[in-house]
Simulated assay, not measured.
Amino acid sequence: MCTSLTLTSHANHHFLARTMDFGFQLDGRPVVIPRNYEWKHQQEAQKTKYGFIGTGRNLGEYFLADGVNEKGLAVAELYFLNEAKYHESTHEEKVNLAPHEFIMWLLGQIGSIAQLRERITEIHLVEEAIPMLGFIPPLHFIVTDKTGETVVLESDSGEMVVKDNPVGVMTNSPDFGWHLKNLNNYLSIQPTNFSAKKIEEYVIQPFGQGSGTFGLPGGYTSPERFARATFLRALTSTGETVEEGINAVFKILDNVTIPKGVNIKDDGSIDYTQYRAVLDVTELAYYFNPYESQEVFKLTLDEALLNVKEATEFTYDPTFKTTNLNAN
């Protein structure tokens, strides 16, 4: 599952946001990977050129599902069931990566989408399972940078292809081009009410406020979430300050956040939103909201974190908290 989107606020801050929806408990936590951090992909050692922050887990090597690096390049990976294709063997002249290793390479080596376009042909994705899952995750990626340009990376042809993203939204299967075409089904969606109409002498009119959104899909399938997020992203007021912009992004995510119990997979596992994240590519800040709490935790990528030798994990208290007004 998962939904992602970009947003630029009136304060000229650019954000990448995502829900992490999954049936398996990932137990990810915010982590900072510093500059010159050595890690292995396909048994080959590599050092990061740039440091970055995201949510991930140490499985012998770190596996991150999203992140933003010190140059303001941000990425999120999402499930791409029945669409993603990978190679069975490695390529001697390319950078061989398992799908779940790609984010480590991208954030550690690439500083902009322009550079990504130049270097994407270096990548050769090979079939390798994530240890904790026991299978090869079918993935595609949404990427943005400080310019606000947004692209999608998909390997439905077997090779990683950069696709322009004019709407700043990505969900899951089918492929991204299909989702763009599907938006043609929602030409009638608008923020204002429909006018009353007359059928001979009988007048039909809206029941009340919100008639312009009639037909906006409300389910949790990938096409429904894509259409809903696109409409909300295009019309939601972002406010005048950075804080108002972040709040606006979370309000949009509220509409695609999946509660526990309403979406059960065929194997009986519960697919739900395990966490939500907003990545500020302007100030290099990471906002993390776990399912168990309404609290948002902030972590900023600074020089102190970028220059340590090892990765830094951050714990948080997931307890649901309230403010007791009687105590004031």
Rank of each mutant, 00 (worst) to 15 (best):
L133G: 03
Q294C: 01
T144P: 08
E128Q: 15
A84K: 06
G134R: 03
P99H: 08
Q25M: 08
L78G: 01
F22P: 06
D271W: 00
R35S: 03
T19S: 09
G158F: 01
L97Q: 09
D280F: 07
Q115C: 00
S112K: 02
P34H: 02
A229Y: 01
N185Q: 12
F288K: 06
A98E: 14
D302N: 15
P137L: 15
I123G: 02
I123N: 06
L187W: 03
K309D: 15
E83H: 08
G168Q: 08
E77R: 01
T171I: 10
L235D: 08
A11V: 05
E154G: 08
N184L: 05
I110W: 00
I33E: 03
H14F: 02
N12G: 11
I246A: 09
V308Q: 14
H41D: 00
S222I: 14
E44T: 14
E243C: 09
E283P: 11
A304E: 15
T192L: 11
G108Y: 04
W39H: 12
T273W: 10
V203S: 14
M104S: 15
V249L: 00
I270W: 05
D175E: 13
L325G: 05
T322V: 05
S188H: 11
R29D: 14
D66E: 13
H179I: 08
V75W: 02
A234K: 12
P138I: 02
E201W: 03
K47V: 08
T230D: 07
T144N: 00
I264R: 05
S89F: 04
T257E: 03
E224P: 05
L73E: 04
G67T: 12
K40E: 15
